[in-house]
Design a protein around this nucleic acid. Structure first.
Length: 344
DNA sequence: CAAGCGTGGCG
DNA sequence: TCGCCAAGCTT
């Protein structure tokens, strides 16, 4: 008998077995093959950790039990439910996707990755996750976890900053799939579980790994050398002044444009200079009080925000925003640092 | 296709 | 502290 390993077969078989015995089975979006619930979880989990998603998923499914409920809701309410989760275009696309499923697919999610990927907010990896979990389709996912697991398994030297290398890794991911469709849910979950636990970015626990003897990175003695990606995002700085106008306990909020940072969320008026802010405040009869500066980090820049608070004797209405009572604030989608500032 | 898009946690 | 990372997608 040959002891030669057959990489694809052995890898998928062991991963599936490991997932069934050691993987996660009790997350709220598991133990169901309802596409609505799986889809919702996959969107929430994009670039977001499980522990963060748990509470949002619970509240969201209570408020919107079906795709029809979500499709009929106001975008503002969807955004309010999403508030604090980040990457708010996901919420906008989620709403659009629900409406497309109702209008174009009779309220039933399509059952192939090819059809799923045509829907708003569903890319190649998310489509594959839904199709493999719900419909046992043999299609590969390739998220951050899987890039790490596979690039280590194969000691993949390609630079994942390049589209060529990423394309190659997609091909490897597809080639490693189990032959049996029935194994797809456990296999896909196993990749995610392995990447989230043993095959961690910093300190992988190779001694516990079910495929450590197949892993070429481990054989080379340097598992953390993979994945290779050279791109370093250049972070920039921004500084703005934030005008907190208040009148008889109500706060002036303006909805941000549907593109850019905090798209569609409600915010205080933002100014590029303190002089601009003072001009606006004084025109309304207010004299701003200086509040402590806030520092807020986004993915691509560091933001210094200078809140200034002005109490007005009289309030003028305007089309650009609304006077909002404190009790109403929870129904508004506020950026995380603004919630901290206003609600505490 | 490179850049834009949130937030929280961790070593 | 601070850079990196997390079930990526859109334009």
């Amino acid at each position: 008998m040959s002891k030669e390993v057959k990489l694809p077969e052995d890898f998928s078989a062991r991963l599936v077995a490991w997932q069934r015995s050691h993987g996660r089975h009790a997350l709220p979006w598991q133990n169901t093959r309802e596409p609505y619930r799986v889809w919702l979880s996959e969107i929430m989990l994009q670039q977001t950790q499980v522990s963060t998603v748990l509470g949002y998923y619970q509240r969201f499914t209570e408020r919107f039990p079906t795709v029809q409920h979500l499709a009929e809701a106001q975008l503002d309410e969807v955004l309010a439910q999403w508030q604090g989760l980040g990457y708010y275009s996901r919420a906008r696309n989620l709403h659009r996707c629900a409406q497309a499923v109702v209008a174009q697919h009779g309220g039933q999610f399509p059952s192939s990755a090819e059809a799923l990927v045509a829907l708003p907010g569903i890319g190649r990896s998310t489509a594959a996750a839904i199709a493999s979990f719900c419909f046992e389709q043999r299609v590969a996912i390739l998220d951050g976890n899987v890039k790490r697991v596979l690039s280590r398994l194969l000691a993949f030297e390609g630079d994942l900053a390049s589209s060529t290398a990423e394309k190659q890794l997609w091909a490897h991911a597809q080639a490693l799939l189990p032959e049996a469709s029935a194994d797809m849910p456990a296999y896909t979950q196993g990749l995610m579980d392995l990447g989230a636990s043993l095959c961690a970015a910093r300190s992988p626990q190779c001694l516990l790994c079910p495929v450590s003897d197949l892993c070429r990175a481990r054989a080379q003695g340097e598992p953390t050398r993979f994945p290779i990606k050279t791109r370093k995002l250049k972070r920039s700085q921004r500084e703005n002044w934030w005008l907190w106008l208040e009148h008889e306990g109500r706060i002036w909020l303006e909805q941000r444009p549907h593109k850019g940072v905090w798209a569609g969320l409600w915010s205080l008026p933002l100014f590029d200079t303190e002089a601009d802010l003072l001009q606006r405040a004084r025109a309304l009869g207010g004299e701003p009080e200086v509040l402590p500066r806030m520092e807020h980090a986004l993915t691509h820049f560091d933001w210094v925000l200078h809140p200034r608070r002005a109490l007005l004797r009289q309030a003028e209405a305007a089309d650009s925003g609304r006077w909002v009572a404190r009790e109403e604030l929870p129904t508004y989608a506020l950026p995380a640092p603004l919630k901290k500032l206003l609600v505490g």
